[in-house]
Design a protein around this nucleic acid. Structure first.
Lengths: 202, 202
DNA sequence: GTCTTGACTACACGATCGTGTAGTAATTTG
DNA sequence: CAAATTACTACACGATCGTGTAGTCAAGAC
């Protein structure tokens, strides 16, 4: 993961460059020539290895999904906090999640499938909650979307707190804040009831 | 807002079409010709009214931001749940928020400025919480990112719960789930402590 | 040795992009 | 009324897009 770029095969370097630029500029915004330049190869080699831009994108989708699942298994094996999907809060999954959300927004089936699997796992998790949510499915879906949604606004959150959330210090603050949000109720039941009644009227 | 498209001026129709396509396909993914076709005008008219694609985008940013603030003021005036920014949870702001997040991801200063204002307001709000978060700024930033982030995964959340969250029924479930998440602690303090210790080790 | 195969580059293609220009129809102004 | 401004369209431009084709080069198979 942190080996110098020279140690990676050209195919891997192209894939990494594609994920980086797809994340930063969107799928349409990153051209094959840009990706090739980022990887230090010719644009023809991108086509040689992946066939088409769409196929390159799907290869990135599959790789990101596999890495996410793989990291999740490793973390469970290491025994760190089994109940919740810890992989979703591990720093090295941040670029993967950011990419996956970008790809989801542009209609990736692979990334959407991973999201639905996360919702399934989250729905099971709701059974361990102290208070049952009335709509387990919606609760799990919104929670999953919230957790992943944070990463698409990485630059904005970084700007708001004054340091990059990809760095050690910023990521620690991010994690702590997420834990606070998930531990401290944001609203009192009275406030929630007020909002609930209001939303039912409109 | 729900008047037929014929009642709107061409300029407004172009802006609405641009926001729709920018949201659906990303900034790069939506061409001026696409936008013109969606609005039912020639591509030249888009240029006539807005000058360039970049200027069109900035006009959309300003409009979305103004509408958000305007709706927020109206809701406060109507007296619905004053403490929290209710506009962020009102159905008619959903497309606006979705657009703003898309634009933020592609580096919009206007949209980012609105986000920072939301974080400022949220930071004030933390003072009313029953338990103080240790890092108000990070707490408010992450909470704002979570609330907005849900909307970028609108299609995925809709797929997960089996109905469109833009519809009345789906939106009610979405709202209820968000309220549950903000009311019921997702983790017990023990679980949070376990994760906190784990994340400090890595 | 030759032969084959896969990694890799150079280059040309049609399509589409944002933009520029020229001109026409409609509306407003005096 | 005429004049001027605005709304709007048609069309051509250079650049860049994804893709296709042809060919070079190195490494292993026989």
């Amino acid at each position: 993961m942190d080996r110098p770029a020279d140690d990676l095969t050209a195919r891997a370097r192209i894939r990494d460059a594609a994920m980086k630029l797809f994340t930063e500029r969107g799928i349409e915004g990153a051209s094959i020539r840009d990706i090739a330049a980022e990887a230090g190869v010719s644009s023809g080699l991108v086509r040689h290895h992946f066939g088409s831009k769409q196929a390159l994108r799907e290869a990135c989708d599959r790789y990101a999904k596999e890495r996410m699942l793989q990291i999740g298994e490793e973390l469970v094996y290491q025994g760190g906090a089994a109940q919740t999907d810890v992989s979703a809060m591990h720093p090295i999954t941040m670029p993967l999640q950011t990419y996956l959300v970008r790809s989801m927004m542009d209609g990736s089936e692979t990334a959407t499938a991973l999201f639905l699997e996360m919702v399934d796992a989250g729905e099971e998790f709701t059974k361990t909650l102290p208070t049952d949510p009335s709509d387990r499915r919606a609760y799990a879906a919104v929670l999953a979307a919230m957790k992943m949604g944070v990463f698409v606004l990485r630059d904005q959150v970084s700007k708001a707190i004054g340091e990059d959330i990809a760095g050690p210090s910023g990521y620690a603050r991010l994690t702590k804040a997420m834990l606070d949000i998930f531990t401290i109720p944001v609203m009192t039941p009275e406030q929630a009831e007020q909002l609930r009644k209001y939303s039912e009227e409109h």
